[in-house]
C-alpha cells in the first residue's frame, strides 16, 4: 500500500500564521500528482508535515499506512526510509564526490553510517550507486566533486541519490525551479520516467502550469492553505489554473515577503 493520505490537515505556526487550514486528499499507490499553488499557499508546509519536519496542528498524515508522528522518532525514521525527496536546491554535499552523494542515499536503509562511506561501502552498494548514476546518465561524473557540475547535473545526482534510497513514495519540491527551461524539462522527463518504471507514488510541486499539465495525472491546487482544485489532468486546461495564481500578484503588491509556507 504505497499511498499518502492527508486527512483534515491544519498547521498554524507559533506566530499565528495559518499555513494550512483543512487539507484533505489521498494519493494512491503509483499515482503521479502535481501540486500547484502560489507562494505562501502552504505547499512547503504540507511537504514538511508529510516528511515529519513539522508537527501538524490538526488532522493526520499516513504514508503507506504509517501515521506520521514527530514524537515517535523510531517510527518516523522507518517511514522516512520509504519517502524519497528531490529538492529545489538539490541539497547535495557539495565538497564530496558525486559517487559519495549517491551512496548517502542509502544512509537510512543501510543503518550503520560507515557502510555508506565510499572507502568502506560493500561492493554491492558501490555497484548499486553506479547503477543509479548510470540511470540518470552521469556514471562518467562519479569521481567529480558535486560543486564542479552544472545545476541540471546536480538535480540528476539528487535523483540518483533518491533512487539509492529505494523509496516507495517520491516528494519533489519544485525540482526544476532552479534550472533553465531546457534542463528543467530534461530533469522532469527523467524523473517521470523513473517513477513510472518503478511504479512509485509521486507528489511534485511545480509552478509552471504547462509542465504540470504535461506530467501530472492529477492536479491538486492549494490556495491560502486549502485544497481548491483536485482533478484529473484530462479534465483541466491551463486556463482553469490561472486563477490559482491570480492572488499572487495581489499578494506581491501587498508587500508579502514571507515566501512560501
Amino acid at each position: 500500500m504505497n499511498s499518502v493520505a492527508v486527512k483534515d490537515l491544519g498547521k498554524t505556526y507559533s506566530d499565528g500564521t495559518q499555513a494550512l487550514k483543512t487539507v484533505d486528499f489521498e494519493v494512491k499507490s503509483g499515482e503521479g500528482v502535481v501540486l500547484l499553488g502560489h507562494n505562501g499557499s502552504g505547499k512547503s508546509t504540507l511537504f514538511k508535515c508529510i516528511t515529519g519536519f513539522e508537527q501538524p496542528s490538526a488532522g493526520s498524515i499516513h504514508v503507506n499506512g504509517q501515521l506520521i508522528d514527530i514524537s515517535d522518532k523510531p517510527s518516523l525514521k522507518e517511514t522516512r526510509k520509504d519517502i524519497g525527496m528531490v529538492f529545489q536546491h538539490f541539497n547535495l554535499i557539495e565538497n564530496v564526490s558525486v559517487f559519495q552523494n549517491v551512496l548517502f542515499g542509502a544512509l537510512g536503509r543501510v543503518g550503520f553510517f560507515a557502510k555508506t562511506l565510499a572507502p568502506f561501502a560493500s561492493d554491492a552498494l558501490r555497484k548499486q550507486a553506479m547503477e543509479c548514476l548510470d540511470r540518470v546518465g552521469l556514471s562518467h561524473l562519479a569521481k567529480q566533486r558535486a560543486d564542479k557540475i552544472s545545476g541540471g547535473q546536480k538535480q540528476r545526482v539528487a535523483i540518483a541519490r533518491m533512487l539509492m534510497q529505494e523509496p516507495k513514495v517520491v516528494l519533489a519540491d519544485e525540482p526544476i525551479a532552479s534550472l533553465d527551461p531546457k534542463a528543467g524539462l530534461e530533469v522532469m522527463d527523467l524523473l517521470w520516467e523513473i517513477v513510472r518504471e518503478r511504479n512509485l507514488t509521486v507528489i511534485c510541486v511545480l509552478h509552471q502550469m504547462d509542465v504540470a499539465l504535461k506530467y501530472g495525472e492529477r492536479i491538486i491546487g492549494l490556495k491560502n492553505g486549502d485544497v481548491v482544485i483536485d482533478q484529473k489532468n484530462s479534465q483541466l486546461a491551463a486556463c482553469d489554473l490561472d486563477w490559482l495564481y491570480e492572488t499572487t500578484a495581489e499578494k506581491d503588491e501587498g508587500g508579502s515577503e514571507n515566501g512560501d509556507q
Binding site: H89, N95, F104, L107, Q165
Partner: peptide
C-alpha cells in the same frame, strides 16, 4: 540546513547525518 535535512529525510540516524553532512560540509 538543506543538505542536512536531505539526509535526515532518508531516515538516517543522527550520527549518520552528522558523519554524512555536517562533517564533510564543515571539513574545510
Amino acid at each position: 540546513a538543506g543538505p542536512i535535512q536531505a539526509l535526515e529525510a532518508t531516515g538516517s540516524s543522527k550520527v549518520g547525518v552528522i558523519i554524512g553532512s555536517i562533517i564533510p560540509m564543515g571539513f574545510p
